[in-house]
């Protein structure tokens, strides 16, 4: 099968789920005639009509809430938030409602809702449009948070998310949309939530990442291999549930671990993994868990400053070499 872009993988998954289940419908800003701010929904409005590909006003709190209220009736809305930055005005609906409804109502009603939204940075979009906030949501019981890094995972995990009976925050990435790769080959391609992947095996260092940072991690692994350093890359794929078992198994082999993420590290994915790994891999670690993320400032505009703030390959590589140096490697 020919390779497709991450964007096309998402579009195909949406198309197939819309076709498979009449309860699935899309809702979001500019997803209809405009075909999506990032063209993920291209062609779907023309194919399925305005009821199933519903254009909304700029009212994130309103239409996320509406998605919740439709999901409570058993529909399966797939909401697009144009970028994750805009989800903040709907934070109350996501965290205080979608996540809590099933529990606080004693299991009597559920919310089979998907919210798709891209994060990421690097195009000088500046402070308010360059964030990766997924870790904030991953800390919230009641939500599931996934962040696929490849077209195959984007396709397969979106299908699973849409079929899931619980609210799923589906984190995409602006830089990933043009990444190409194959689609899953078996069955209808649905990929389970909660299982990390190991796109590259290695023995000296475990490099954990999610979303676009996985692609950076793979390039860092390539560079380090030229110096004879063998890096194992773990793609988390899902942040809640978090597949700690797969990371721990890797760390038991490599004895060193670096967690890279595009968001701020403080209270982030690396912080959570460090806390868990120091417990389950205490005797396996040859060095403290290292973390690397975005510089802890709002994203600046000027290109040299933006580059300095991003967790680029150079920064991840430097963190890896620093960690290895602590071990005399």
């Amino acid at each position: 099968m020919a390779d497709v872009t991450y964007r096309e993988a998402l579009r195909q998954a949406l198309d197939e789920e819309l076709d498979r289940d009449p309860d699935v419908f899309l809702m979001g800003e500019e997803i209809g005639r405009f075909e999506g701010s990032y063209k993920v929904t291209a062609g779907l409005w023309a194919k399925y009509g305005a009821e199933r590909v519903r254009e909304t006003p700029i009212s994130e709190e309103g239409f996320v809430g509406a998605g919740i209220g439709a999901a409570m009736m058993g529909l399966r809305p797939v909401i697009e938030i144009m970028t994750i930055n805009f989800i903040l005005v709907a934070m109350d609906q996501v965290v205080n409602h979608a996540a809590k409804i099933r529990y606080m109502f004693g299991g009597k009603v559920g919310v089979p809702l998907v919210i798709r939204t891209p994060g990421g940075a690097g195009a000088q979009l500046t402070a308010q449009h360059s964030q990766s906030l997924e870790a904030w949501f991953a800390g919230c019981p009641g939500l599931k948070v996934v962040a696929p890094a490849t077209p195959a995972d984007a396709y397969g995990m979106l299908k699973t998310a849409i079929r899931d009976d619980d609210p799923v925050l589906f984190c995409e990435n602006l830089v990933l949309y043009n990444l190409t790769g194959p689609l899953p080959e078996d069955g209808d391609g649905a990929i389970p939530i909660g299982r990390a992947a190991i796109p590259r095996e290695g023995t000296d260092l475990t490099l954990v990442a999610h979303s676009y940072t996985v692609q950076r991690a793979l390039r860092v692994a390539d560079r380090l291999s030229q110096d004879g350093i063998s890096v194992e890359v773990v793609d988390l794929r899902s942040l809640r549930p978090l597949d700690v078992d797969t990371v721990a198994e890797s760390v038991r082999k490599t004895n060193r671990v670096l967690v890279a993420e595009e968001g701020w590290s403080t209270y982030g994915v690396g912080a959570e993994l460090a806390a868990r790994l120091q417990r389950v891999c205490f005797d396996d670690l040859d060095a403290p868990v290292e973390r690397v993320g975005q510089a802890e400032v709002p994203m600046p505009y000027a290109k040299p400053l933006e580059l300095a703030a991003l967790p680029l390959e150079s920064k991840i590589e430097a963190a890896a070499r620093s960690l290895l140096a602590e071990c005399g490697l």
Binding site: G106, G107, D165, P192, V244, R279
Partner: peptide, 22 residues
């Protein structure tokens, strides 16, 4: 912990998350 998630797969989905939990 009952009624937090409702999908039939949720126990399997979360089965690899207990390691090192608080």
């Amino acid at each position: 912990y009952e009624h937090l998630y409702g999908d039939p797969a949720h126990e399997e989905q979360f089965s690899r998350m207990q390691a090192g939990a608080p």
